[in-house]
Write a protein that binds this DNA or RNA. Structure first.
Length: 848
RNA sequence: GCGCGCGUGGUGGAAUUGGCAGACACGCCAGACUUAGGAUCUGGUUCCGCAAGGAUUAGAGGUUCAAGUCCUCUCGCGCGCACCA
């Protein structure tokens, strides 16, 4: 494989091991975290930028000023900053700058809801919660807000989505990532709400609010007959009248008790409650009621929707249940379709100035109108959320961060200098989670409190941190100056052949590392892993890699060029292996009975790599038999009997001496191969070579079986042919191939004993089969003089004729018509047409 | 519900750009060697039929000289997302 597939192979699980034990990994993972911490996402350049550049805003860098102006948020911040600058309140300025910088960092701190398990007394990561219960113990969990570190992966949503088109992953996997990112284009629209003090006595004055909604169908705005706010919204209490308060509070309490499952699929029946207040639809000034319902999610969009019951299934169900008005605003293009509940595109009606426009045009027109009136804005919304990056566990990289108290008395965080890395966790008596949810590291007071009065961050990073970049460290694992040397990185990841060694281009001839062939592919050539990583690991790693790319530390925008999901192996009953089902196959048992060659060979032979396949122990016996045939192809069976006897009688015999007792098959001779033998070999070389490139191991093995089934019948077996075959076999069954290679290479060579040091060269012969050059197949040897051509009459096979490979179209026609088997089918009939596909087939079209 | 993928002998699968369906194995049947066979070797094995021949790639229809392969619909299975506005 090393030779055949010139790609980089890594182990994801190994990285997890390293990430929790290896100071080297701690150091460089923390180093990368600092890069994230000291960077922000620049919406103008659409990439990560060091914080230093962000400060240009405040320094009024003229070069960038015109670019800044294109982004309203930054203009706004800049203006506020300038206004405050005139007031010359230095403390406030510092605080403001700090807040803004913090608010723009790729790594930032915020209050975020985390899973809290009362019984275990621990905070759980998402992956430790299954169906609303803890993975350990199955205890109930609740959402509890806690201060957490977040990574701003959402700022990369667009890039993560767009660049999927540049990489060679399966469609289903790309689709999973697309769904996870969940991009949708639409608009934010503001609805005015007025609530008087009389209606809501909790307000200290008459209040005007804006309810902002996100919609992908702004063209249906005229059909919005009510608004719905998520029950979790912080605005709910302000939006409730005294008259409705009892009902609203009862509803919110009921919703809080529902599990996620009850809120979704089991709850086909819509529930909700009227708040008592009304909003104004900006397009027609109609008063529409504001409801609270749990079919609206607080976490998506703005947490509020405009309901268009005529053209949205959920709103339609809700409106029917609560007798809310349903107004048609889209006419389906097919008049037979009922407009009620029609969610497709059509023509706008009952919609004022946009009536008569197609859905696409209506969207465009209405958004332009909303923007001109400052009532709405074209918006792209994503399902992707920022990544909650802190864990309250012992195992994991501590954050290289300290907390300090500012002059204003408020605490703020600051990065430790790179020279203080790695930050290793303190030794603890008790490293289990604490009962308060505080991280275990907080127990080590001496470690936490620094001499200058600052306090260490005690959260740790999740295991994802190491797996986000381990493939880069593998390129240059011993580099103590950088997480990966740039030249090494460029060599492997960009496929360049440049200057691996101090700027000197190595010639291909004396380089031990062969350059990639015409490779312009970005990143790791081949990454094999399970689908369980489809949306977490593979998205996180892409994100980190893109940040490192933007900051100039890596040379490719994508980490993994080609990704293959190996299918899982099911139990013999076709069910997923599990202890409870009792259908687990223990690899050690198989290895013990059949050996690792047979085990490996069988796993490759079962079927396509990507496919989910059931295990079948009988199948292992099949490939085991194949290996037996390979063995007998090479060795003299009589000598093998002697070997077996020797092995049982002379226990003290060294293994190597016994090996030498087994003699080569006497049919193996150092003679020239016949053309037929060469053809068999080269057909095998061609198939195995091509199939390895395509990862079609099952058919490659089948080709080798065909070769052996043929070669075993040869009276004389040319040694040159068998040697080439062993090179083909080596990647699949290295042990037996290596042992047989020893025999065919040097049948009377020095006996190797277990005491001999393993070397590539034992003095007279090169023994390491895996360093042999891969055979090249010779197409000329595969050319047939005579070929078999199927002859069809009216598309039905009637005969297979043998013709010269150089036969012309006319020859083929003639031969086909003369075939004895074909004649009965064409006699007495008119040949209307003859299709001749050269070297492939002949089809005679006849009529009565 | 939405999205993606897949349906080929008794079984795993092969047929890479439409061109001999069932490669290679497992299993089964028969035979050889053998005291013995859970070793090895030989032959057979999609279905119907003595045969000639016919049928056949989940089902139905279509395009084509030619369809497992392309198109449409239906059914079944798997995976992912799941009230995402």
């Amino acid at each position: 494989f090393k030779r055949q597939i010139q790609s980089l192979g890594f182990s994801y699980d190994w990285s997890r091991e390293l990430a929790t034990t290896d100071p080297d990994y701690f150091q460089w993972t923390q180093w990368i975290f600092l890069k994230l911490y000291n960077s922000y996402f620049d919406p103008i350049w659409n990439k990560a930028m060091p914080i230093a550049l962000l400060e240009d805003v405040f320094l009024e860098n003229p070069k960038r000023k015109s670019e800044w102006k294109k982004n309203s948020r930054l203009i706004e911040v800049n203006k506020i900053f300038q206004r405050h600058a005139k007031e010359k309140n230095a403390d406030e300025l510092i605080k403001m700058r700090r807040d803004f910088v913090n608010g723009s960092r790729l790594a930032y701190v915020t209050e975020a809801p985390v899973w809290w398990c009362e019984q275990l007394g621990t905070v759980l990561a998402n992956e430790e919660v299954i169906d609303g219960k803890s993975e350990v113990g199955g205890f109930p969990v609740v959402r509890k807000p806690m201060r957490q570190w977040m990574l701003r992966i959402t700022s990369y949503a667009e890039k993560l989505l767009a660049d999927l088109d540049t990489i060679d992953w399966t469609d289903s996997l790309k689709e999973m990532q697309r769904n996870w990112i969940g991009r949708s284009e639409g608009a934010r629209v503001s609805f005015d709400v007025s609530i008087t003090k009389q209606e809501n006595s909790q307000l200290d004055r008459d209040t005007k609010l804006l309810i902002e909604v996100f919609t992908t169908r702004p063209d249906t705005l005229f059909g919005a007959t009510y608004l719905v706010v998520a029950p979790e919204s912080i605005w709910v209490h302000k939006l409730t009248t005294d008259a409705q308060r009892v009902h609203v509070e009862a509803y919110i309490t009921a919703v809080a008790k529902k599990s996620d499952l009850e809120r979704t699929e089991l709850a086909k029946d819509k529930t909700g409650v009227f708040t008592g207040v009304y909003a104004v639809n900006p397009v027609n000034s109609e008063k529409i009621p504001v409801w609270i319902a749990d079919y609206v999610l607080a976490s998506y969009g703005t947490g509020a929707i405009m309901a268009v019951p005529a053209h949205d299934t959920r709103d339609f169900e809700f409106a029917k249940k609560f007798n809310l008005p349903i107004v048609q605003v889209v006419q389906p293009n097919d008049p037979k379709i009922d407009w009620q509940g029609f969610i497709g595109d059509g023509v706008a009606i009952n919609s004022g100035s946009i009536s008569g426009l197609s859905t696409a045009e209506a969207k465009k027109k209405i958004v332009e109108w909303l923007e001109s009136k400052w009532l709405g804005k074209k918006t792209i919304n994503y399902k992707l959320r920022d990544w909650l990056f802190s864990r309250q566990r012992y195992w994991g990289e501590p954050f290289p961060i300290v907390w300090k108290i500012g002059p204003d008395g408020e605490s703020y965080h600051e990065a430790l200098p790179e020279s203080s890395l790695p930050v290793l966790p303190p030794t603890l008596e008790d490293y289990k989670p604490t009962a308060t949810g505080e991280p275990p590291l907080a127990r080590a007071k001496n470690w936490v409190n620094l001499p200058d009065g600052s306090v260490r961050e005690t959260n740790t990073m999740p295991q994802w941190a190491g797996s986000c970049w381990y493939y880069l460290r593998y390129l240059d694992a011993k580099n103590s100056a950088a997480f990966v040397g740039s030249e090494v990185e460029n060599y492997w990841m960009s496929g360049g052949v440049k200057s691996l060694n101090g700027g000197i281009v190595k010639s291909e001839a004396n380089s031990t590392i062969q350059p990639f062939n015409n490779s312009t592919k970005p990143g790791v050539d081949l990454y094999v892993g399970g689908t369980e990583h489809a949306v977490l690991h593979l998205l996180y790693a892409r994100f980190w890699h893109k940040v490192l790319f933007d900051l100039g530390y890596v040379s490719t925008p994508e980490p993994f060029f080609k990704l293959v999901n190996q299918g899982i192996i099911l139990g013999e009953d076709g069910q997923k292996m599990s202890k409870s089902r009792g259908n687990v196959v223990n690899p050690d048992d198989v290895l013990g009975e059949y050996g690792s060659d047979a085990f490996r060979l069988y796993e490759m032979f079962m079927g396509p790599l990507e496919m989910v396949k059931p295990w079948n122990t009988k199948g292992v016996e099949g490939v085991y038999r194949f290996l037996g045939r390979v063995w007998r192809l090479f060795v003299d069976e009589k000598s093998e009997t002697e070997f077996e006897q020797a092995e049982t009688t002379a226990e003290t015999q060294k293994r190597g001496e016994l090996v030498d007792l087994v003699k080569l098959n006497p049919a193996i001779k150092d003679v020239a191969a016949t053309p037929a033998q060469l053809k068999t070999l080269h057909a095998c070389i061609k198939k195995v070579t091509e199939d390895l490139d395509g990862l079609r191991f099952n058919t490659a093995i089948s080709a080798m079986m065909v070769f052996v089934n043929d070669a075993i019948t040869w009276e004389t077996k040319p040694i040159s042919i068998l040697r080439e075959f062993l090179i083909l076999l080596q990647p699949f069954a290295p042990h037996i191939a290596e042992e047989l290679w020893f025999k065919v290479q040097s049948p009377k060579s020095k006996v190797i004993t277990p005491n001999d040091k393993p070397t590539l060269d034992i003095g007279h012969e090169t023994l390491d089969l895996s360093y042999q050059p891969w055979p090249k197949f010779d197409a000329a040897l595969l050319v047939e003089n005579e070929i078999e051509i199927p002859v069809q009459v009216n598309g039905k096979l009637r005969d297979v004729i043998k013709v010269s490979a150089t036969a012309t179209q006319a020859d083929l026609e003639k031969a086909a018509k003369n075939s004895e088997k074909v004649k009965p089918f064409i006699e007495g009939k008119t040949i209307k047409k003859i299709i001749v596909v050269p070297k492939k087939m002949v089809n005679l079209i006849v009529v009565e």
